[in-house]
Amino acid sequence: MTVASTALIVGSGALPRHLAEALRRKGETPVVAALEGFPPEGLVPDLCFRIERLVPFLRELEQSGVSRVAFAGAVSRPRLDPSLFDPLTAQMVPRLIAAMQGGDDATLRAVIGLFEEAGFAVAGVADLAPDLVPGAETLCGAPTEADVRDVARAAAIVEALGRVDVGQGAVVAQGLCLAVEALPGTDAMLDWVAATARRPDPRGAKGVLYKAPKPGQDRRIDLPTLGPATVRRVAAAGLAGIAWEAGGVILLDRAAMLAEAGAAGLFLWAREP
């Protein structure tokens, strides 16, 4: 196995590859450990693991020289096989089940706690690759006054959703909420808006997508993510642009996002919370 001080605990999607590439540009080759059943895009894992064998996996990381971990990529709750538990991991089951019953945020906090108790520092994407998490700026285009009002309305909705651990995004047009993000995710929300949503005034503001972390969320894990595919879906939904909480959202392939947004006439705005 590759010997490195940092391990990326990864799931599916493009984020693990982007984070691994950012670390390699800084001269570090991380250990890439994928949860079985959730392979990352364009990245070959150094090892795969199962939740039922978590303690042996943590020991393997320690023996490989890992002292710091970061989480990247999408996973859903895996179905656990009781026959695969080792005795030490089995002792963690009540704690994990209790956390899962408390919602996604509680589950993620429990996962972080397990890694920290095993002696690993837990880093966020912003710690390892700050360029992926931009601060306040307008990257492309410019929102109108009506867009700014819609973004403010969407931000209030997303904050309310986050307080009950539901989602991290909303679409608002002309002050009305067209859709909110729930379990199916951002892509499904935008596809629904493209297929069904109608604005009260066809000549009025087109609407915006807004994304932000949940209030009180541990920002070392599960930050919202935007990428070129999001820009294409926003354009297909007929929206005016995308805004997000500055410092709280990951951008995948910024150059491609800017190119897509410029071609579609959309604004991209990292908004000060």
Rank of each mutant, 00 (worst) to 15 (best):
G42N: 09
R79E: 12
S67F: 15
T107M: 04
V55C: 12
D105S: 10
V75A: 12
R149I: 02
L161T: 14
L84R: 14
I97E: 08
A118P: 07
E62L: 07
E117P: 00
P45L: 12
A98Q: 11
A152V: 01
A34S: 08
T89Q: 01
I97R: 00
L54W: 00
L35P: 01
P78W: 06
V125L: 11
V158Q: 15
L35N: 02
G37S: 03
V125Y: 08
P56E: 12
S67T: 15
T138H: 08
G65E: 06
A126N: 11
V32G: 10
L108F: 15
A146L: 13
D81P: 05
A155K: 14
D104G: 14
D46I: 02
D147F: 03
G103R: 01
V32D: 11
G37P: 01
P39R: 11
V75S: 09
A160S: 15
E116R: 14
A121D: 12
F38N: 06
E145H: 08
V148P: 01
A70G: 08
A90K: 00
M92I: 03
A155V: 09
D105A: 12
V148F: 03
A110M: 12
F85G: 01
D147Q: 07
L54S: 00
G102A: 03
D105I: 08
L139E: 04
R59L: 13
R59G: 13
V75F: 06
G167R: 06
E41V: 10
V111Q: 08
T107Q: 03
R79I: 10
G102T: 00
G135E: 10
G65F: 11
D81G: 09
A152K: 04
G65P: 05
A142E: 08
C140H: 06
D165K: 05
G102D: 02
R53L: 11
D104T: 14
E36M: 06
G135N: 06
D147Y: 03
A154W: 10
L47S: 09
T144F: 02
R79H: 10
I112D: 08
V164K: 15
T89F: 00
A33E: 07
F115V: 01
A123M: 09
F57I: 03
D104Q: 15
A74E: 09
R153F: 02
G119P: 08
D127M: 07
F115A: 02
Q91P: 02
D165T: 09
L139K: 00
A110T: 07
A160K: 15
G73D: 02
F115I: 00
F49H: 06
V158L: 14
P78D: 07
S76K: 09
L88D: 12
A121R: 11
R163D: 14
V75K: 03
L128M: 03
V122L: 13
P82A: 07
L114I: 07
I112E: 06
P40M: 10
G103S: 07
E60C: 13
Q91W: 04
